[in-house]
Simulated assay, not measured.
Amino acid sequence: MGSFSIWHWLIVLLIVVMVFGTKKLKNMGSDLGGAVKGFKDGMKDGSAPEEKPAPPTGQVSNAANAEKTTIDVEAKTKS
């Protein structure tokens, strides 16, 4: 009673296919494969050395230009 024969596993597989259907089993398999791939990519990215991002272009770099382009706005509350 310790192990099942090939016929037992084929019957179990047939019942699973009948309950879930082949389309749902295919979707579950592809979702599981995508999750495993995403996990592996995440683990690979986590072990890579961090790179410092390049400073964005087009932003104000000094305080003098920042004062010229800044607009102060007062918020008014309704009463």
Rank of each mutant, 00 (worst) to 15 (best):
F4C: 15
F4W: 07
S5H: 01
S5C: 03
I6W: 05
I6Y: 07
W7H: 13
H8D: 09
W9C: 03
W9A: 13
I11W: 01
I11E: 05
V12M: 01
L14T: 02
I15A: 02
I15V: 07
V16N: 04
V16M: 09
V16T: 04
V17C: 04
V17M: 09
M18A: 09
M18T: 07
V19P: 02
F20P: 04
T22H: 04
K24Y: 01
K24L: 04
L25T: 07
K26F: 09
G29E: 08
S30N: 14
S30V: 02
L32C: 07
G33L: 11
G33T: 12
G34I: 00
K37F: 03
G38V: 13
D41W: 15
G42W: 04
G42D: 07
M43R: 12
D45T: 00
D45V: 10
G46N: 12
S47H: 07
E50C: 08
E50M: 11
E51I: 11
E51P: 12
E51Q: 02
K52P: 00
P53H: 06
P53G: 03
P55M: 12
T57K: 13
G58N: 00
Q59A: 08
Q59G: 04
V60E: 09
V60H: 05
S61F: 02
N62S: 14
N65H: 05
N65W: 03
A66N: 05
E67V: 15
T69C: 10
T70Y: 13
T70V: 03
T70N: 15
D72I: 12
D72C: 04
V73G: 09
E74W: 02
E74F: 06
A75T: 01
A75L: 10
T77H: 00
T77E: 10
K78E: 03
K78L: 07
